[in-house]
Nucleic acid binder design. Structure first.
Lengths: 199, 199
DNA sequence: CGTCGAATTGATGTCATTCAACTACAGTGG
DNA sequence: CCACTGTAGTTGAATGACATCAATTCGACG
């Protein structure tokens, strides 16, 4: 099976374990193709899986009382995404996980990780590292939202995620930065003006 | 030793392991008394320890280009605090960890955790749970900074941390919320007015 | 070509910041 | 005991950053 081949090679790479290991856990994960705008999680549901993006791009966002979207995270190829609050504490999720592009996603159940760790204890360490990185990201984001202006946050975004910048509409970048599309448009205009002056 | 007694009972509680377990690791942790305004970590240093607050109150904050403080986290009794970005990735910290009150803190080195996990593998799971909770907190914070007004964030703070509210000056609450002390003062005034109307 | 969502632009509004003045109060030293 | 000092908190007026609303342009795609 072609898809199964992909699962094993990708996962063995990210978790740094032999392919055979992943194969033994293949009952607990499956490949799913999702089309643009399709949901993998919706508000009110309990998140039971972790999603590994093999191809495409996902985003996680919340809806506020005014129906406005706020993007918490993007997940391009080789990224994991999930609502850990919901997954680990069995609480209803406040978030949506949606395909920004047609995508191929490995759905990894809780049992998948349990099995992996059981058979290959080293997985636990890699898992831990993923959590640590997640914390680092979130902490940087909090600090940036507290300390930086919209312009500075946009500059950071360009540096950090130049690939994503080119793949999502501008209003999604604005949503991620915590400003309106109109404001981002003006920020960009202002930056263009500045760069022109100094060249 | 009195302090050693405290270490073991507190830590055995939080990590859900027998006291004897902690005692075997007591070489890797120590009790430190810090006075108000004393630092446990400063910007530019590499964070090598995790701090467990037995008594008192700590805060972690960053300084922006204008010298303005931005509080990332408070840590009252029985909380762990650390700059995990720095600790786990050996990077210079962007943050300060400082005592808000005279405090007593257990300093837990990396080796402490390594030893604990080695001798009591179950520690790893509890450790994992702590990371998951940390992620949940940070994610909620990001969402709140993106989606909520200053007034809503203040209301959430009151509900979530009523104890801390009473122990820190108002300007620190403002810093945590991401607004100026003046703004918080006005938010509070407005809330008082509203509550008066409806009573 | 016509349509629809995305992006830009202008005019205006709102919320929070800044700066400055003032009050309240705790701690210090004469 | 009182004056002196410094920090916290409040308030007002002006400013600034970003939001909102509305109109227009741009661009992809059927």
């Amino acid at each position: 099976m072609d898809s199964l081949q992909n699962i094993t090679s990708y996962l063995s790479e990210i978790f740094e374990i032999p392919k055979e290991a992943v194969e033994t856990c293949s009952n607990f994960c499956m490949l799913k193709k999702v089309v643009k705008n399709e949901f993998l999680l919706q508000e009110g549901e309990i998140c039971t899986d972790t999603f590994f993006v093999e191809k495409g791009l996902l985003r996680m966002y919340s809806l506020d009382r005014n129906g406005k979207e706020h993007i918490i995270q993007f997940a391009p190829e080789n990224w994991l995404i999930s609502d850990r609050s919901s997954l680990n504490f069995n609480q209803k999720s406040k978030y949506y996980i949606e395909a920004v592009e047609d995508s191929e996603v490995f759905i990894l159940s809780k049992d998948f990780f349990i099995n992996m760790i059981e058979k290959f204890p080293q997985t636990a360490e890699n898992n831990d590292l993923l959590l640590q990185k997640h914390i680092r990201n979130l902490q940087n984001r909090v600090n940036s939202l507290l300390a930086d202006t919209a312009e500075e946050r946009y500059m950071s975004f360009i540096k950090m995620y130049p690939d994503i910048l080119l793949r999502v509409p501008q209003w999604m970048v604005a949503s991620y930065l915590g400003i309106t599309p109109e404001s981002l448009s003006r920020v960009r205009k202002e930056l263009a003006r500045k760069n022109f002056e100094t060249s």
